[in-house]
Design a protein around this nucleic acid. Structure first.
Lengths: 400, 400
DNA sequence: AGGTCACATGAAGGCGATCTCCGGCACGAA
DNA sequence: TTCGTGCCGGAGATCGCCTTCATGTGACCT
C-alpha cells in the first residue's frame, strides 16, 4: 500500500496556483480581491500568483471596471491562447485528433480512416495526426500542454490497459502512453473514454464547477461505462476499473451475456443491441454516418429496442444516484445524436429519489453538451485538467 | 458551490502531523528515519513532529533496537492511553455507549433500555451515558477527543438528518449533534451507521491501511447501507446520501417495496424479511438475544430466506465491485452473528470479476472483525478519525 | 584503531504566505 | 473645493515551517 505522504511549501504553491486558475475558470472574470475572498488566500498571495499567471499568459486582464466606490476592479479571465492541448480518439474505423485551446475551443481537426487498429498500425498514424495538427494551426509550440487520448478499456499510468485480452485484441499490456510519448515528445495521458468525457464536461461543459457527478457514457461500439468525479477529484478505483457498469445485472434471469452472467446492462441498452433489434447485421462495416441515418429514420425495430432499453437505463440511473449521490448524472457518449435524443425523451419518469423534497440546484440528469465529440474533446481536456486541477496529490510530496 | 480553497504552512503542518500518525498506526512501530522514508518528509521534520507528538502523549518510544549496524533504532508506536473517545449507538430498544482508548480497545461500556426513542427522551439518556462512562474509567479528561454517534439515516454536519420523516419519526430536522454537544461539552460527531462502521474497520479492523473499500452494512432493524472509503477519503455524496443502496432494484418485477419501487434489495436481504420467512411476527418486541437464539436454531424458514437472499446479495456485491472497484468489500452490521455467518458461507461463488487474472493482495470480500459491535465501535472511532486522518480538507484554508 | 553505516539533532538558510504600511481611485459630506 | 471613507493593489519586512548542512552517537567491519 502506498502511504499518504507529507507536504511542503513547494506543493502548497503549486496547489494555490491551481486553486486560482480553477476559481477563474468556474466563476468567470474575477478581480484579485474577489479571488482572495473565494479561495481564503491573502490578497497579496493572490496578487503574486495572478502576476505570475499573467506573465505565463494563462490569465489576461480585462478593462478596468469603475464601481460606485473605490479603485476600479481589474477582472482577470482565462486566456484561451495561453495553452493548447491535443486530443486523440481511436475508433474501429478511424483515428481522429483535435487541437484545442485552453477554453476547449477546437482550433484544428483531423480524421483519418484506419482499418483494424492494432498498436503497430495505430501508433504511427496517431503520431502523424499529432504532428499534422501542430502544422495545421499557428501557435506557440511551448504552450502545448500535452496529448490526451481516449480509449475504451481501463488504463493505469502509462496507458497500460488492465482489462482482459478479448475486449481489446492486441492492446493487452501495450504501454500506449509511454510509446506515444516517445514518439511525439510531449506528455501523453491515456484515459478510458467515459473518464475523459467526464473531465471534458467538467472543464468546459455542463458539469463545470460541480464537485460530484457521474458521467454515463454510451459508447458507439457498444458497452456502457461511467466516469466518476467525486468531491472534486477523479475517482478511478483501486485498479482503475471503477465505473465498468456495462456488466451490472439489471435483469437477474435475463439475456445471456458474453461475460457469462445473465441480464447485464450492456445486453439491453448498448447501440450494438439496437442494431440487432433493427435488423442491421453488418453494423461494423457501415460508416457512422450511414448508421446515424438509419437510426434517424427510426422504425419498429428501434421502437422495440427503446421499449426494452428504457427500464434498465432508469434502473441504472437510480442505482448510480443511490450509490454515489452525485449532484447530477451526465448522459452522453459517442452514439448517434438522434439515438441519444430518443433515449433522453423516453427517460422520464425517473425513479423517485431518496430525498424527494430536497431542492436541487442542478437537474438530476443532464445531457452532455459535446454530443458525439464528447470523448475526443474530453481527451483534449486531459492535459489541461492534469495541469490545472487542484488535487490531493499535488499537495503531497512525491514518495520513493 | 463551494470553491476549493488555497493552503498555507499552518495547514501543511497539520497535515504532516496526521501523516506521521497514520504511518505509525498502519505500519506499527517505526523509527523516525523509517517514518521519514515512508512519508517523503525530511528526517528533521519528522523528528520535530515526533517530538511534539511524544510531548502530547500520542506516541511512545519503545526500547532502542540494536541493528547490524548504525545507531540503534528507537521505534515509536501509538500510545493507546494518549487519547480516548466515546461511541454511542441508539437502537429501537436500548441505548449503548463505549469508552475506548486510541487503539480502539474498550475501557468501559454501558447499555440501557430505552423505549421508543424520540429526541426528547433520548438526549438526556445519552447525556447520562456519556457522563457515566467518564466516571466508570479513570483517565485524563483532557485526553477525551470527543463523542461519536452512529444512527440509521444520513447526516450532515451537526447531525441533521436528510431523510424523509417516515424513516426516522421525530428525528427529522432535529440537530442531534449540536444538541448533544451543548449537553456534554465535547465535540460530537454524528454519522450514518454504515459510515461509522467503515471508519471503525479502517482504523482498528480488517480494512486498516486500505485506500479504497466499501463497507456493506446489514442493520439489525432492517435496511442495508454502504459506507465508502475511497482513495483515502470518506465519501458521503453530494447530499450525504451516498451508499443508500437498500433501495437499488435487484429484481425488476419483484416484491413491492415501501418506497414504491419493485424488487428493492431491502425486500430480500434484510433481517426484517428473514423474520417474515421464519414466521416471527413480533420481532420488534423480542430482545436481540431472543432473536439471536431463534436464528441460531435455524429451520426451514431461515433456509428459505437464505435461498432467496443470496442471489440479490451476490448481485449487489458484483455491482459494488463494478461501480467502485474497491480493494475489498467488508461485510458486517448489527445483525446476529450466526445470521451473518450463514450468509457468508452461502456467498460463494461470487460473480466473475472484470479482471479475473489479476492478483489480489486483499480478498474480494471480508467479514468485519467487530461483529455486532461494529457500529458503536465505529462511532467511537469517529472522533479519532477526524483528529488524525490525513484529508484533503485539512490542507485547505477554511473559507468564509 | 580507523572506516563506514544508520540514526538522530542543532543551527543556519530558503521559501512562500502573511502582516504592515502606503498610494491610487471614486464617491459623499462638509 | 477639501476632506473623509471604502475599496483595491503594491512593496518590503516578518513569520512559520521545511530543508540543508554539519555534527554527534553507537555498533559492526576490516
Amino acid at each position: 500500500m502506498k502511504a499518504i505522504s507529507g507536504t511542503n511549501l513547494e506543493q502548497a504553491k503549486s496547489h494555490n496556483r491551481r486553486v486560482v486558475i480553477e476559481a477563474v475558470r468556474t466563476h468567470g472574470p474575477l478581480s484579485r480581491a474577489a479571488i482572495a475572498r473565494m479561495t481564503a488566500l491573502t490578497a497579496q498571495t493572490v496578487s503574486n500568483i495572478v502576476e505570475e499567471l499573467e506573465r505565463s499568459h494563462l490569465l489576461v486582464p480585462a478593462e478596468a471596471q469603475k464601481l460606485a466606490r473605490g479603485q476600479p476592479i481589474i477582472p482577470y479571465s482565462i486566456n484561451p491562447a495561453g495553452a493548447y492541448s491535443i486530443g486523440l480518439e481511436l475508433g474501429r474505423q478511424r483515428a481522429s485528433g483535435v487541437l484545442t485551446d485552453l477554453s476547449g475551443a477546437v482550433c484544428a481537426r483531423i480524421e483519418r480512416p484506419i482499418e483494424h487498429p492494432d498498436p503497430q498500425r495505430a501508433m504511427p498514424a496517431l503520431q502523424a495526426i499529432v504532428e499534422d495538427l501542430q502544422q495545421a494551426f499557428d501557435f506557440d509550440r511551448n504552450r502545448l500542454l500535452g496529448v490526451g487520448m481516449a480509449l475504451p478499456g481501463r488504463y493505469a499510468d502509462g496507458g497500460i490497459t488492465s482489462l482482459s485480452p478479448q475486449s481489446l485484441p492486441g492492446w493487452q499490456d501495450f504501454p500506449v502512453g509511454h510509446e506515444l510519448e516517445r514518439r511525439v515528445k510531449v506528455p501523453v495521458l491515456v484515459e478510458n473514454d467515459a473518464t475523459a468525457a467526464a473531465i471534458g464536461e467538467r472543464l468546459h461543459g455542463v458539469a463545470r464547477g460541480l464537485g460530484s457527478f457521474v458521467y454515463l457514457f454510451l459508447a458507439g461500439g457498444g458497452g456502457i461505462g461511467a466516469g466518476m468525479f467525486l468531491d472534486g477529484h477523479l475517482y478511478k478505483g483501486s485498479r482503475n476499473n471503477a465505473g465498468e457498469i456495462g456488466h451490472i445485472i439489471v435483469e437477474p434471469h435475463g439475456k445471456l451475456c458474453s461475460c457469462g452472467k445473465r441480464g447485464c446492462l450492456d445486453r439491453y441498452v448498448s447501440p450494438t443491441v439496437a442494431y440487432e433489434f433493427m435488423g442491421i447485421a453488418n453494423a461494423e462495416e457501415l460508416s457512422p454516418d450511414d448508421l446515424d441515418a438509419l437510426i434517424a429514420r427510426g422504425g419498429e425495430g428501434l421502437d422495440a429496442w427503446l421499449d426494452q432499453a428504457v427500464q434498465p437505463l432508469r434502473q441504472t440511473l437510480d442505482f448510480l444516484e443511490l450509490a454515489f449521490d452525485p449532484q447530477t448524472i451526465v448522459l452522453g457518449g459517442s452514439i448517434s445524436t438522434s439515438l441519444m435524443a430518443r433515449l433522453a425523451e423516453r427517460l422520464e419518469p425517473l425513479h423517485v429519489p431518496i430525498d424527494p423534497d430536497r431542492k436541487r440546484a442542478v437537474p438530476r440528469v443532464m445531457i452532455g453538451m459535446t454530443g458525439k465529440d464528447t470523448a475526443i474533446l474530453g481527451a483534449a481536456a486531459l492535459p489541461i485538467f492534469s495541469e490545472t486541477n487542484p488535487r490531493f496529490d499535488v499537495l503531497q510530496k512525491p514518495v520513493g
